[in-house]
Design a protein around this nucleic acid. Structure first.
Lengths: 336, 336
DNA sequence: GCGCTGGCTTGTATCGATCCAACCGTCGAT
DNA sequence: ATCGACGGTTGGATCGATACAAGCCAGCGC
């Protein structure tokens, strides 16, 4: 163990001022005369002083930690949103003195972990990323009056008043569809998820909107399946046989990879014979031979907005917070 | 804000015992008579008491937090080790009462962040994942007498005495090479990284070892390039032209994707015409059409061993810790 | 000379858990 | 009857930063 780090009192003594003054130098510098401030700061640097976090947390009742439940990407899928988002979240939080604390829950009692962290005053707030159907986190935290910001809209409860940031999936798929239509396609198919997944329906609606805007039919061109490569492949096979589309817009890169797989099996070339667009701009889309055109969610921007919202929520008094909806972009690659 | 959570004193009063007894009930249950313990525990549950972390941290000088610098996966590559590793790390740490705190550093002063967290006693220990050439973290933390465990061997300084866990890259590539040789290939090429990257040389040595074990030549069959898809493609093109290999073992999935790309361009089928094996078992390997055979590092196991080592290092007195080397497995898919 | 203000100092309380030392019934063993 | 262990109690100190109140001194305006 290292020697005990210097304390406030050590700094005070060395700088020839009182503890209070050192504390003020750190937290209310405007109260000090410039030269005193300078002197205190010099000693702080000299001793390498950094306030003891436990002591500060105890007194101020703030931990300056933000909790995030970390769920790993599913094996066998192309989805790895967390990586980009998390890094920017960590970096942006740091700019405002916050660190990110990760936790996981045992699946049996998903709220337990949140509750424990709250009651032990381990975190000041949460970032919630699961807002899929039936996720109880938002409601629970609201009820506990715990500060939090959600990445994802309150689909089930539009009257929810908590802060949230989300990506406009419909705008993304509309962008993708328009791109394909601009390139001359008219029969653009959709491969998405189960009807009860709000995110999937949102993305689907962008495709519908873009098609209708050009007076094109969508009947028979849509498919709803599980989010796996195999399902994407199956769906593409069925659609090709029954509706002869020349392009596919998919709800995820995972599904799009299924389409690419089918094309490969049939000796068709993605981007030349049939166009394919995915969603997420995953690493897979970036490195697959030929490249997969994909809708890129602005995850870095989401992270920045989440931190902004956190600061709002944690300020005293808490400032009201509306939802923020961010538009994705389209990364055009070889597949269409 | 919620009402203030109950404190030790609240529990004590309600259970009709002293503060000390409640504290003992939590930390030294063996000191209590079973029925008293039961009564205290009942009240703890009833009030939903959880010890205030800041207070406990202050008193015990332990935060029960483990710091990890979070670096995002590079865009355009297939490497995303962090995801699997991190989740298991978080889950395993939780079993022993530890949480994971993420931080990032500004690139200008990479040790600053470590130093700040140390001096403010924000974390008890670090998990260090950058042990590449010239990474100064391990030396710095050793010098500061800060507890830490490295994911990665101390390549540059074999005399380093800190705890580490690593994946045996040579064993992985040997496994891959043997697999190809078993399938009848004799001209197996290597595509790896710059000579000064220890990890790359380690992986390369496994290929060399496996080839030599069967008396096969390696001359002219190896290439060293940057870790990008484009470099992998280039290297494969050169090797095919100059050495006519029938199989490739690559230092990463990223490089392997470059090979797959070249094959696709030439109308060759991976796994039939030319075999390709990658390293990392990334999502890309799992979902690319046809599938990429890849060496899978046992990241979950690494995480478990890291936590074990952490507990050793943090125990009083710290128990000595040797390095742990884990063997990867081979995930066989369509490419070879 | 009086009052005021800026820039401190001094002193004390507080946050909540843990540590320490001393003490005290009760019960069983000697 | 004495001793010691068991299973507690009690009171206080401690960790380090921050909050709060009161006081003090120099300098300034009037």
């Amino acid at each position: 163990m290292p020697v005990n780090p210097p304390t406030l009192a050590d700094v005070a003594e060395r700088a020839g001022v009182s503890r209070q003054t050192v504390s003020n130098a750190l937290n209310n510098p405007h109260l000090l005369r410039p030269e005193t401030l300078e002197r205190v700061r010099a000693v702080v640097d000299e001793l390498g002083y950094s306030p003891n976090r436990a002591a500060r947390n105890l007194r101020t009742r703030h931990s300056h930690l933000v909790g995030l439940r970390f769920t790993p990407a599913q094996e066998g899928t192309a989805n790895a949103l967390m990586d980009r988002f998390l890094h920017k979240l960590v970096a942006t939080s740091a700019l405002h003195g916050y660190h990110v604390l990760l936790f996981s829950d045992d699946d049996t009692e998903p709220l337990q972990a949140y509750d424990d962290l709250l009651r032990s005053t381990a975190v000041d707030a949460f970032v919630v990323t699961d807002t899929y159907l039936g996720a109880p986190q938002a409601a629970f935290l609201t009820q506990q009056r715990a500060p939090f910001v959600a990445f994802g809209r309150p689909w089930e409860d539009p009257s929810a008043t908590h802060a949230w940031v989300d990506v406009d999936g419909a705008a993304g798929t509309a962008l993708a569809t328009d791109h394909l239509l601009d390139r001359g396609h008219t029969r653009v198919a959709w491969i998405g998820w189960r009807k009860d997944l709000f995110i999937g329906e949102d993305r689907r609606s962008g495709w519908v909107r873009a098609m209708r805007a050009r007076g094109l039919p969508t009947t028979g061109l849509a498919s709803r399946v599980e989010d796996t490569v195999a399902s994407g492949r199956e769906a593409a096979a069925v659609l090709l046989a029954e509706a002869a589309p020349t392009a596919f817009v998919c709800a995820s890169d995972t599904l799009a990879m299924g389409v690419l797989q089918l094309l490969a099996e049939r000796g068709l070339v993605a981007g030349r014979d049939v166009a394919v667009v995915g969603f997420d701009d995953s690493q897979v889309a970036q490195v697959v031979p030929g490249g997969l055109t994909s809708v890129r969610p602005p995850l870095e921007q989401v992270a920045v907005e989440v931190v902004t919202a956190l600061r709002r929520v944690l300020s005293t008094p808490p400032r009201a917070n509306t939802g923020v909806l961010l538009s994705p972009t389209l990364e055009v690659r070889g597949s269409g």
